[in-house]
Design a binder for these strands. Structure first.
Length: 415
RNA sequence: GGAGGGGUGGCCGAGCGGUCAAAGGCAGCAGACUGUAAAUCUGCCGACGUAUGUCUACGUAGGUUCGAAUCCUACCCCCUCCA
């Protein structure tokens, strides 16, 4: 690989975003000059994106930072079909109303990471339903279907794996790649977009788009994929006890989001700093060189930076402050999950009920189990009695701190 | 349309009349060790209850039986082969 000239490719190469590219040198030449649009598609199967989409989101952010134009493609049309890539079974069909609601939620996430507008480097958001829904079947087959060979399509992983494992693949899903390829052609025509990016599982779909545009329009466009991010111990990134790590505030509190990053494995810290923060490379190199307990400082910086990008400066500071009080001083911060109780009702309030109410336990049975296992602390004092009730005397500063294990804490606030 | 196979807990997957809240694995939670890390070891892992107890659950709805995830009937869904 020769030396990269464009700021964009230099940055994403150095920070570890590049997995495959259709023509790296050609792409570099295109991006070395004036602003160029590039897009990534996101589907609308949920009303929020989660941490698993952070790499594509950050790719668009880097693109904008390097002076180019990010296009966020919402898969309003393709979501009706479902991408078979990486899935064993067809996804559930969503209604138009579901999709519209999901798109609105996802839009609010992107507004944190990109600056939208009408300028040459402002981000825009478009919806492939706008062109896919009106396609005429016969005309589409005649104009574009003839450029796809079934023989070739059967060799793509998304299709091949299903067939090899004898799992069903509907004709509907089989068409997904054709529509995604057409998206690229359409976006190239309308917006002059030269590049589609995506996760490594999108390689086949992206290549199809590049080839279709070349055959139909003679356009020279490019594809680039990012590696699938797993943790150093091999787990898929982005899952916790409560499920997915959502980017939307209303699905996951800023404190929990901060904690997710704070709990990064040692071996991942450097890689994650490069991928998920805007910190300069020199700073990252210094942080990832830390060893032993010192690497915890790097994890805090990672948590702060990642939370700041997604939830704002204030939320990041509050989460850090709460974590500092909770873990380092044994006190409690304001951002912990809490439940409010009338002072008069306090002495009748069972600890296990409080644990369920604050989310520390999913059921009373689980709460009892945690107590039996010695995991529960009340104001940092171990609690052994599964039937214990709260007492007004425990409410220092008008609140009682409950802990389930070392990491999960909550407050009972007395009114 | 015809013939066969199948739908089990978050996932995978055993069970094939009672001893089944259902083996085993994965995921998850807690404890020990640590650094809010990893690895390792130990315990837990449907709900409600102090409880040997009750309830809910093995695609859906009925039925047979003292007793059904297991047998029968109908329906829904999926797969394979044939047309």
């Amino acid at each position: 690989m020769s030396t990269l000239k464009s700021a964009f490719l230099q940055a994403i190469s150095e920070r570890g975003y590049i997995h495959q590219c259709t023509d790296l040198d050609g792409l570099d030449a295109v991006f070395a000059g004036t602003p160029v649009p590039a897009y990534i598609g996101f589907d609308c199967t949920a009303d929020s994106l989660h941490v698993g989409s952070m790499v594509p989101i950050m790719l668009l952010r880097r693109l904008q930072q390097a002076g180019h134009k990010p296009i966020v493609l919402m898969g309003g049309g393709t979501t009706k079909i479902g991408d078979p890539s990486g899935k064993d079974t067809a996804r559930q069909m969503l209604t138009d109303a579901d999709i519209a609601r999901n798109m609105a939620g996802i839009r609010s996430v992107f507004e944190k990471f990109l600056s939208f507008g009408d300028g040459p480097t402002d981000a825009i958001m478009i919806n492939n339903d706008d062109w896919l829904n009106g396609l005429s079947y016969v005309a589409f087959l005649r104009d574009y279907g003839r450029h796809f060979s079934i023989n070739r399509m059967l060799t793509f992983d998304s299709v091949k794996l299903r067939l090899e494992r004898e799992q069903p693949l509907s004709f509907l899903e089989f068409n997904y790649m054709i529509l995604q390829a057409y998206d690229f052609l359409e976006i190239n025509r309308t917006y002059g977009c030269r590049l589609q990016m995506g996760g490594s599982d999108q390689w086949g779909n992206i290549v199809n788009g590049v080839e279709l545009a070349r055959r139909v329009d003679g356009a020279e466009i490019f594809g680039l994929t990012a590696p699938l991010i797993t943790t150093a111990s091999g787990a898929k990134m982005g899952k916790t006890a409560q499920g997915a790590v959502w980017l939307n505030e209303d699905r996951l509190s800023a404190y929990d989001y901060w904690q997710f990053w704070r709990n990064t494995e040692d071996a991942d810290v450097g890689r994650f700093l490069k991928l998920f923060t805007d910190l300069p490379m020199e700073e990252i190199r210094r942080l990832e060189a830390l060893r032993g307990a010192e690497i915890n400082d790097a994890k805090k910086i990672l948590a702060n930076e990642a939370t700041r990008l997604c939830r704002g400066e204030a939320a990041a500071q509050e989460a850090e402050e709460t974590a500092r009080k909770t873990f380092e001083q044994g006190r409690s911060g304001d951002a912990l999950p809490s439940v409010e109780v009338e002072a008069a009702a306090l002495s009748d309030y069972a600890v296990i009920d409080a644990m369920v109410a604050t989310g520390l336990a999913a059921s009373k049975g689980e709460a009892r189990r945690l107590i039996k296992q010695g995991a529960v602390k009340l104001n940092d004092a171990p609690l052994a009695d599964t039937e214990a009730k709260l007492a007004p005397a425990q409410a220092a500063d008008g609140q009682i701190k409950l802990s389930a294990g070392k990491k999960r804490h909550a407050l009972v606030k007395v009114r």
